[in-house]
């Protein structure tokens, strides 16, 4: 299609599309004022999460308990995408790895400044600590495996910023990261199967519920948080590794 024709067709179509979308949006309830007579799914969850699940963060209750099966799928979407990126960026037989771009001859090496190095090294341990805190407190306050996992994954990124690629590879070797990601993903299924065997329903809670507001509350949700944290942290570090390897390790053009 010629660009101008395409733009014309697009603008007309999108005007119609936006028109029907807005027409539909105006049929929704007024913002912030849902019909008080019909309790939604969310209202039910809000009323059940503390009395029945001992989970004080309702969003975590939805994610890992009421709709835990969705989250299993979600976790594997991440797993499949990371595997897919690793598969696509794999080294082919006709490519050969050379030294990283910053070690090539005739290239000026720019080291990170002392301020950057100091700051990022200083931030590594707080990042790890904060990540672990967020992962383990998902059932109490906002947070959980996904958020905490991303924070944990920022620690190796800080190492990369402070030093260079090689120290990152030393701290987080590829095999370790791959194993962590797979164990995290598989662990979720194992927890689900444990529920199946103990209570006859996949992903059914099989641990004591604890006291609402405690770190050890919510039963198997706490365990799921740990596996998801492991999977997310592993997945993001693996993504970082494969992208950096693709860009930084020189290959002969085909």
């Amino acid at each position: 299609m010629r660009p101008l024709v395409r733009l014309g067709l697009f603008l007309v179509s999108t005007a119609v599309f936006a028109g029907i979308f807005v027409a539909a949006l105006f049929d929704l309830h007024p913002l912030g004022h849902a019909d008080p007579l019909s309790a939604t799914y969310g209202d039910l969850v809000n009323s059940l999460t503390v009395p029945e699940r001992h989970i004080t963060d309702a969003v975590t209750a939805v994610n890992f308990d009421f709709r835990g099966f969705d989250t299993l799928g979600e976790e594997f979407i991440m797993f499949a995408s990371v595997l897919g990126a690793a598969l696509l960026l794999r080294k082919h037989a006709d490519e050969s790895a050379g030294p990283p771009i910053d070690k090539q001859q005739g290239r000026q090496i720019t080291l990170a400044s002392d301020a950057v190095r100091l700051l990022s090294v200083a931030l590594v341990s707080p990042a790890v600590l904060f990540g672990i805190y967020v992962v383990t407190h998902g059932q109490v306050t906002p947070g959980g495996g996904f958020q905490g996992g991303v924070i944990l994954a920022s620690a190796p990124l800080l190492i990369y910023v402070s030093g260079e690629f090689h120290s990152l590879r030393r701290v987080a070797p590829r095999w370790l990261v791959e194993a962590a990601e797979s164990i995290g993903a598989g662990g979720y299924v194992v927890i689900g199967a444990a529920g199946l065997l103990s209570a006859n329903a996949f992903l059914h809670n099989f641990l004591p519920l604890g006291r609402p507001g405690d770190v050890f509350s919510g039963g198997s949700v706490a365990l799921i948080d740990l596996t998801v944290g492991l999977e997310v942290a592993g997945g993001f570090i693996l993504l970082l590794l494969v992208f950096l390897e693709e860009v930084l390790v020189l290959r002969d053009p085909i």
């Binding site: 849902a34 939604t40 799914y41 969310g42 209202d43 969850v45 809000n46 009323s47 999460t49 503390v50 009395p51 004080t56 963060d57 309702a58 969003v59 209750a61 939805v62 994610n63 709709r67 109490v140 306050t141 906002p142 609402p212 507001g213």
Partner: peptide, 19 residues
């Protein structure tokens, strides 16, 4: 929708859409 420091049963926004 976080009932850590407010009593359970307080009107809260819909947690499902957030999830």
């Amino acid at each position: 929708p976080v009932f850590a420091d407010i009593p359970s049963g307080t009107p809260a926004v819909d947690p499902v859409v957030q999830a």
